[in-house]
Amino acid sequence: MTSPVGFTLVQLRYFLIAAECGSMTAASAELHIAQSAVSAAIHNLEGDLRAQLFIRRRGRGLVLTPAGERLQHQARQLLARAREVAGEARGSGQILSGPVSVGCFITLAPYYMPALFSECTSRYPGIEIDVVEAEAEHLLQALRACRVRVLMSHGESVRCAFL
């Protein structure tokens, strides 16, 4: 089991907004929360990280420290990835439906397409599979032109390329 990090995504979000706004007061207005909540979250974040993130200049706002600048970059990436994870989790429960074009080499189609059809239609009853059987050059052209969204190829194992 991994050990907890001690800080939260909310603290990182407040930190980023305070850095962008240049003051705790402006950040609180942006977030529609009390200024003390922003200050407390950032203070706790600094404590968890054991690093000063801002130089606080009374009446003149905030300036990032070198540690704050490093965290700013990392926090943006982490929050972006967290949004992706949340989107993927929400999307996993959605029902897939509609047409999908699958390109397959002529020689592979009889061997792999029946299993693909069976698996996809049982998992996603609303999906409509359109198969394009062709040679390599024609399949690559179809993939580039978006006439095919999935391309099945062979080698050591069957692989799919998605556009």
Score class of each variant (00 low, 15 high):
132 V>I: 14
132 V>Y: 11
25 T>H: 14
124 Y>K: 01
151 L>W: 15
114 P>M: 05
56 R>M: 07
93 G>P: 00
126 G>S: 03
75 A>V: 06
153 S>C: 01
157 S>H: 07
64 L>I: 15
152 M>L: 15
8 T>A: 14
135 E>F: 05
117 F>V: 02
121 T>Q: 12
134 A>C: 11
71 L>F: 11
67 A>I: 03
107 T>D: 10
114 P>F: 09
103 G>K: 00
113 M>N: 01
91 G>N: 05
21 C>N: 13
13 R>T: 04
145 A>R: 10
10 V>S: 04
16 L>T: 07
91 G>W: 07
144 R>F: 12
73 H>Y: 13
134 A>I: 01
95 I>F: 01
123 R>S: 00
4 P>F: 08
72 Q>V: 00
94 Q>D: 02
154 H>N: 11
100 V>Y: 03
16 L>H: 07
54 F>K: 02
56 R>F: 07
149 R>A: 14
121 T>P: 01
125 P>E: 04
111 Y>P: 00
18 A>M: 06
3 S>E: 10
140 L>M: 02
5 V>Q: 08
127 I>Q: 04
80 A>K: 05
12 L>S: 12
1 M>S: 13
114 P>G: 08
93 G>L: 07
121 T>M: 05
154 H>D: 05
157 S>F: 08
76 R>T: 05
90 R>F: 00
17 I>N: 09
22 G>I: 15
132 V>C: 09
22 G>C: 13
98 G>Y: 09
118 S>A: 12
60 R>F: 11
139 L>P: 00
152 M>I: 15
23 S>M: 14
13 R>V: 00
104 C>Y: 14
70 R>K: 15
102 V>F: 10
105 F>N: 01
55 I>L: 13
112 Y>T: 07
135 E>I: 07
111 Y>A: 11
137 E>V: 09
1 M>E: 03
77 Q>T: 10
81 R>N: 08
76 R>N: 04
127 I>C: 05
86 A>P: 02
24 M>V: 09
111 Y>E: 02
56 R>V: 14
10 V>W: 12
88 E>W: 06
113 M>K: 01
139 L>G: 01
76 R>A: 14
2 T>I: 10
16 L>S: 06
41 A>G: 11
96 L>H: 06
121 T>G: 03
128 E>D: 13
93 G>M: 00
94 Q>G: 02
146 C>P: 00
51 A>L: 15
75 A>M: 10
94 Q>Y: 02
146 C>H: 14
79 L>C: 11
135 E>T: 06
101 S>I: 03
102 V>S: 08
144 R>H: 08
61 G>M: 11
14 Y>G: 08
138 H>Y: 05
30 E>I: 03
6 G>P: 08
13 R>L: 09
83 R>P: 03
106 I>W: 03
101 S>G: 01
106 I>V: 08
142 A>Y: 02
100 V>A: 10
64 L>W: 15
14 Y>N: 14
1 M>F: 07
